Computed example of a mutant assay.
Amino acid sequence: MSNINPDTAYSRVYGDIARERAAQDAKWGEQNHPDGTAGPGRRAAARSAKLWTNSQAAERTLAWADVLEEEVAEALAEDDPAKLRAELVQVAAVAAAWIEAIDRRSALLEDTDER
Rank of each mutant, 00 (worst) to 15 (best):
A86G: 04
L108E: 15
L108M: 15
A93K: 09
D103W: 00
I99H: 03
V91Q: 06
L108I: 12
A77E: 05
Q90R: 14
R105C: 08
V94Q: 11
L108D: 14
A95I: 03
A77C: 04
D80G: 00
A101G: 04
R115C: 04
A107L: 11
E114M: 07
E87Q: 15
L88G: 02
D113P: 02
A97I: 01
K83P: 03
R115S: 10
D80N: 09
R115L: 15
D111W: 05
A107E: 15
S106D: 12
E114K: 13
E114Q: 10
R115H: 11
A86I: 00
E100W: 01
A107W: 02
A101E: 08
A97V: 01
P81G: 08
E114I: 01
A96M: 04
P81M: 04
E100M: 11
A101N: 05
W98T: 14
A93H: 05
E100S: 09
P81C: 01
A95V: 01
E87I: 00
V89I: 14
A93N: 02
D111P: 00
W98N: 08
V91H: 07
D111R: 04
A82S: 07
D111K: 09
L108R: 12
A101K: 00
A96H: 05
A101H: 01
V91D: 07
A86P: 01
A77D: 02
I102E: 06
A77P: 05
A77L: 03
R85Q: 15
